[in-house]
């Protein structure tokens, strides 16, 4: 199914909560409201003409330029983005779900933004959400076991955030 048709279908069903779409890009994407993620994902997976049975990847992209000099020419507005790459083996179509989040929940530094989990829909999401939590710092509400996965459990900060600063030392070991 074409992404345009998928978009129409979702718009009929979810109306306002479908925030936008980019159908011209190499990977056509649909932007949805964070709170609607679990419901939209369930429809995408279970609706027979859609059947997105395969979740490839979850990516967190941090859009902020911490360097004040370069910040002027920064081409995006400051926000955080989650990308869900989905495909259907049955129908052979692909889709990118895009979710825009504030960098910090309520603008308070250190408060991780939150989205509902999809790990109950695709088990792939289990580890991928843990990875995004670990490296990019997004809290997935309802995830059964949201722990760090690649970094040590007592690691400070989320390394793939653009304003991440490496701690001077870790357990007495110099890190720089």
């Amino acid at each position: 199914m074409e992404v345009g048709l998928i978009l129409d279908k979702l718009k009929q069903r979810f109306g306002e909560r479908i925030l936008g779409a980019d159908l011209e890009a190499a990977d056509p994407s649909i932007e949805i409201a964070p709170a609607a993620l679990a419901e939209v994902a369930r429809i995408l997976r279970d609706d027979p003409p859609l059947r997105f049975d395969y979740l490839h990847c979850i990516t967190g992209v941090d859009y902020v330029q911490p360097d004040a000099k370069k910040a002027k020419s920064f081409p995006w507005e400051v926000h955080f983005e989650l990308l869900y790459h989905l495909s259907s083996m049955a129908h052979r179509h692909r889709l990118v779900l895009r979710i825009k989040l504030p960098r910090w929940q309520g603008g308070v530094e250190g408060q991780l933004p939150e989205v509902p989990t999809v790990s109950h829909l695709w088990r792939t999401a289990d580890w991928h959400e843990r990875e995004v939590f670990d490296l990019s710092g997004v809290r997935f509400a309802g995830h059964p076991d949201l722990r760090r996965i690649l970094c040590p459990e007592d690691w400070q900060g989320h390394p793939l955030r653009k304003d991440y600063k490496t701690a001077e030392e870790y357990h007495g070991i110099r890190t720089r």
Binding site: A25, A26, D27, H56, C57, T59, V61, P75, W76, L83, H85, V96
Partner: peptide, 24 residues
């Protein structure tokens, strides 16, 4: 160019995917 691209290839161990976001 500005934009993003995601592609998976069939590596021996499975589908290896890369995503790149360009900013110009």
């Amino acid at each position: 160019p500005r934009g993003e691209a995601y592609l998976e290839t069939e590596a021996p161990k499975g589908q290896m995917g890369f995503l790149v976001v360009g900013d110009g």
